[in-house]
């Protein structure tokens, strides 16, 4: 029974990663690709870690899997904020279909050197 659940988690995790990769190819600009990667890929990693901690019932595996999950959950959004902000600051071109951009030309916070 546990093996069925673990196999399901492993397959769904790898499918989420595949979806994130398709998103990087298909979506139109940097910000949209970031949507796909920061959500789908981190959920895929979490599902696969859940699968490995179901198969190997050792506390060291659980602790390390929990560490990876916490890092991924709390650092993936922050990394995407940083890259989105830097891309917008450097004036990267936006894809077609934008209906508004209220950040254009606004004064925003820059980190110190």
């Amino acid at each position: 029974m546990i093996e069925w659940i673990a196999a399901f988690l492993l397959i769904s995790g790898s499918l989420f990663m595949l979806v994130a990769a398709i998103g990087t190819v298909k979506l139109s600009d940097v910000y949209m690709r970031m949507h796909a990667i920061t959500k789908a890929a981190s959920l895929g990693a979490i599902l696969m870690l859940a699968s490995v901690s179901l198969i190997y019932m050792q506390w060291i595996v659980w602790i390390e899997a929990l560490m990876v999950v916490v890092f991924v959950i709390f650092t993936a959004p922050i990394a995407s904020h940083m890259i989105a902000k830097a891309a917008h600051k450097t004036g990267m071109p936006k894809g077609p279909g934008y209906i508004m951009d209220e950040m254009e030309g606004k004064d925003t916070y820059l980190p110190e050197e």
């Binding site: 492993l10 995790g13 940097v30 970031m34 696969m48």
Partner: peptide, 24 residues
């Protein structure tokens, strides 16, 4: 552009975590 390639680095990191788990 350069940010496109940086974003791919994030994706490849997640993918290699997945590959390591599958190998385990």
């Amino acid at each position: 552009t350069l940010p496109d390639r940086i974003v791919v680095m994030d994706l490849v990191a997640s993918l290699s975590i997945g590959l390591i788990i599958t190998y385990i």
